[in-house]
Simulated scan of single mutants.
Amino acid sequence: MSDRSIQSRLLPSTNEEEAIDRSRPEHVAYSAIRGLQAGFVATLIMTAFRLPILRSLPPSANFWARYVGDDDADEYAGIGLLLHLLYGTSAGAVFGGLFAFWDAERSIEAEQRGLVWGSVYGMALSAFGSQFMLKELLEIELEADELALFHAGHLVYGLALGAWVGSRTEGVGDPEEDYDYGEEN
Rank of each mutant, 00 (worst) to 15 (best):
V120P: 00
K135I: 06
E139I: 05
R113V: 02
G114S: 06
L142G: 12
G162W: 00
F150N: 15
E111H: 04
F132H: 08
A127K: 09
G118D: 03
L161S: 03
W117P: 01
L125G: 10
M133A: 13
S126K: 06
E111I: 07
G114C: 07
G158T: 08
E141Q: 15
Q112V: 10
A163M: 05
S126N: 08
Y121L: 03
F128P: 00
A148E: 12
L155N: 01
L115S: 00
Y157N: 07
E111W: 06
W164K: 09
E139Y: 08
R113N: 11
G162N: 03
G153W: 05
S130L: 13
A110C: 03
V156F: 02
A160E: 04
E111G: 05
L142T: 12
W117M: 07
H151V: 09
A127Y: 07
F132T: 11
A163Y: 08
L134A: 05
E136L: 14
R113L: 03
G114D: 00
F150I: 09
Q131D: 10
L137E: 06
F128R: 11
A144D: 14
Y157D: 05
E146L: 15
L159W: 00
V116M: 10
F132Y: 14
W164I: 06
S130K: 12
V116L: 15
G114M: 05
G153K: 11
W117S: 02
A124V: 15
M123P: 00
G114Q: 05
K135G: 07
F150G: 12
A110S: 13
G122N: 04
E136H: 11
W117K: 09
M133K: 11
S130T: 08
L134C: 03
R113P: 02
W164P: 03
L125T: 04
G162F: 00
L115Y: 01
G129M: 14
L159D: 03
K135E: 13
L159K: 01
S126H: 02
V116Q: 03
V120R: 00
F128W: 11
A163P: 02
A110G: 05
V116I: 15
M123R: 06
M133S: 12
E136Y: 14
F150D: 15
G153T: 11
F150T: 08
A160C: 09
L147P: 03
L147Q: 15
S119H: 04
G158V: 04
G158N: 05
G122D: 06
Y121D: 03
L134R: 15
F128M: 11
M133C: 09
G153S: 15
E111F: 04
Y121T: 01
D145S: 13
E136I: 13
L142D: 10
S126Y: 03
L142Q: 11
Y121C: 01
V120S: 00
Q112L: 14
F128V: 10
F128L: 14
A160I: 08
Q131I: 11
Y157R: 09
A110H: 03
L149A: 10
E141L: 10
A148M: 11
G114L: 04
A110T: 06
E139A: 14
M123T: 12
K135D: 10
L147F: 11
G162P: 06
G114N: 05
S126G: 14
Q112T: 13
D145F: 10
A152F: 06
A163C: 06
S119D: 02
L161V: 00
S130D: 15
L155H: 01
A127D: 04
S130E: 12
